[in-house]
Design a protein around this nucleic acid. Structure first.
Lengths: 180, 180
DNA sequence: GTGTGCATGTAAGGAGTTACATGATTGC
DNA sequence: GCAATCATGTAACTCCTTACATGCACAC
């Protein structure tokens, strides 16, 4: 059983240093979340599998009676991570956007409802961009350039999207057609 | 059991006219695929469920011994579709991009590998945009404006992305830092 | 006569979410 | 004392993909 992308989220984070399952979740939420989300329900079982495969190793870091387990990459894990990352084969990109779906079927809406909907989409993208912006300083401060670049991509994408839907809303409202 | 977004793909397509399960798949692949993909494994069972819920109705359209079933919306189905579409509540947007994930963990790559990877990302987005472009005339020809607008958004998004990664690749290669 | 497209479906399995359960520590 | 946060995990469930199975019709 070869590891899926979620396993590589874990390996990638552990490549930055030893972390607990809890840590991994927090870090993923601050960084990879906007293009690859994870949950505890995936992380803990995956940590077990990766340990069994010898890609990571656990070490007890409990404090008193409070349990804590740190994981770190093994040489094999590091190797596996690198092999995966360096493989340039085109990988899947999947998007599931329910609002875009609603917009697509907007015949079922009045023009006014459509404009409202477009406004909501614009706001959503702006909010996501703002959320990412908050964490940007952190991404800028750490030494891994691509961490920051990927964050910048996320911000730029959501701002660009907000813009696009804002423009379409305006066009629709003013009744003009055709938009280059 | 309330219908999920995939059910609304079906309802939305049936709102355009009666179609078979096969038709629905073809149409979805040409239109909603880039932001909400579906497969036969979802469509056929869902058609059964929607029929049982009274949102759609089947009618036999076999030709000789060759089986064919057309489905069309009932009044209740039309109502359900409209209620869903008009609900402005912010809906989920999910992105899963394995290449972005690899890029994020690019510490595991050399600079040269990273540039190659960025180039691959650029090409991927260009290819997707080109694929959508092919279907654009069809989207432009039919009377539902939002069908075309959503298609235009897809094209613009992938072209914008291709551009972004192309620029980053150039920046990295020329060794310059900071990119506004 | 044969390959391509039309047409319908299912079974198995993988991936991921949600809700739940439990308990310790820290700061107010 | 109480709330928030740290910390680990599981069970049930939904959603979706993939692979398979079957067969007709039509154009070449």
């Amino acid at each position: 059983m070869k590891p899926g992308p979620t396993a590589y989220v874990i390996l990638g984070i552990l490549n930055l240093g030893p972390h607990s399952g809890y840590d991994i979740k927090q870090l993923a939420d601050l960084s990879t979340r906007h293009f690859w989300a994870t949950s505890y329900g995936q992380i803990y079982p995956e940590l077990k599998r990766l340990t069994e495969s010898g890609l990571i190793k656990s070490e007890d870091a409990s404090k008193g009676t409070r349990q804590r387990t740190l994981y770190h990459l093994t040489a094999k894990g590091k190797q596996t991570l690198h092999t995966w990352a360096a493989d340039p084969a085109i990988q899947s990109l999947e998007i599931r956007d329910e609002m875009l779906l609603k917009l697509f079927f907007a015949d079922a809406m009045s023009k006014k409802e459509t404009v409202t909907h477009l406004e909501a989409m614009r706001r959503r993208h702006q909010q996501v961009a703002a959320g990412l912006r908050e964490h940007e300083p952190m991404a800028a401060a750490q030494p891994h350039r691509m961490h920051h670049e990927v964050m910048k991509f996320g911000i730029a994408f959501h701002e660009w999207s907000a813009d696009w839907f804002g423009k379409l809303a305006k066009d629709l409202e003013s009744g003009r057609e055709a938009k280059k």
